[in-house]
Design a protein around this nucleic acid. Sequence first.
DNA 1: CTTGCATATTAGACCGGCCGGTCATATATT
DNA 2: AATATATGACCGGCCGGTCTAATATGCAAG
Lengths: 197, 197
Amino acid sequence: MTKKELKKLEIIKTGFFLMKSKGYNGTGINEIIHTVGIPKGSFYYYFESKEGFAIEILNYYADRLLQNVADALTDPSQPPLQRILKLYKRQVADYLDNSSFSYGAFGTRLCQEIGSRHTLVKNAAEKVYKDLIGLHNQCLLEASAKGDIGRDIDTAKLSEFIIYSWEGALMRLNGSKNADSLQTFNDMLQDVVLKRA
Amino acid sequence: MTKKELKKLEIIKTGFFLMKSKGYNGTGINEIIHTVGIPKGSFYYYFESKEGFAIEILNYYADRLLQNVADALTDPSQPPLQRILKLYKRQVADYLDNSSFSYGAFGTRLCQEIGSRHTLVKNAAEKVYKDLIGLHNQCLLEASAKGDIGRDIDTAKLSEFIIYSWEGALMRLNGSKNADSLQTFNDMLQDVVLKRA
DNA sequence: CTTGCATATTAGACCGGCCGGTCATATATT
DNA sequence: AATATATGACCGGCCGGTCTAATATGCAAG
């Protein structure tokens, strides 16, 4: 990784943390550059614009998230439903260790705030969402084929539903400083959704 | 209702529609007053500040939402689980008729964007959320007592889980211009969560 | 029914400050 | 010498909010 790439990454990470708690419009370029400790010109040397910057943040974290999820949901050493449960258990554990992780909601939130006008941001976030659904669906199809869930269950819809719930639970953590909502999601996913599906 | 109250309401409704698609920080006072057609001074005659304005929006829609939900979930002519299913079926129908309704996500989104700094907004939104959970829980407890759902199910957690999913589904409608996500939520609520709980 | 006054409301120019973004210049690096 | 990167003063424009003046309205006294 070149020096330039490292510096970009540092700015991306800082921007992510700031925007995560203050939103896109609530986070100024000046705040970002002061936090990183670079002059204004450097920011625009590394990034084309604020919108381009947001998209780079989105893509950086989306790549990591999708890789994580793909690894977990295709792990051949576990039966499919266990993979899903383990994935979310690990996400909760990761959050407790290091509250930085929760990328998922970042894209959704960015979209809520500015998606209606910044279509590039919206498209980037939309793609991640579609990919996530696809990974879940593949895993659930496998479970369905094995008879681990009712064959009548619409796995595509169930995939979406799981992600809705997860994102809803992520929304609830803001400021609460504990992971109760994530734990509740896990419990219900296990006891209600998957155990009985 | 006095003239003053009517005018306030008009500004509140306009602010709601603007902030719904552009967020709090993305919606300027100037834009609001130009849309309503009033001078700046009038806005600050009716409202103390932008933050106070947001809280009034929040409260106005929260009152209507909670009233709706309370009516639906205590309807004695229906068994408890049917009340929940009917409530969300009606919410979807309302959305299709008039996409203005979705208050629910508004509070959550406002919180995501500015809750970390504007604690009054956050508290207002938090209360609505707690009330919503309570109404659902009361209904599910009734279902549990009748044996309509497993007595081992934690109704409080299930209430939260339902609301997570619903809010997650609401997040997905932005810009999609169709209610597929809400329909999916309904289907899964019926076929997976309640039928088997 | 009119007048006169207090109060409610309208009106928009104006404020300092921050916004995203540009640019010419300086300094490293090769 | 040429190219890559660093630097921060500067730009027009919009931000939330204030203020003073004008005008509409309600009401009490005659």
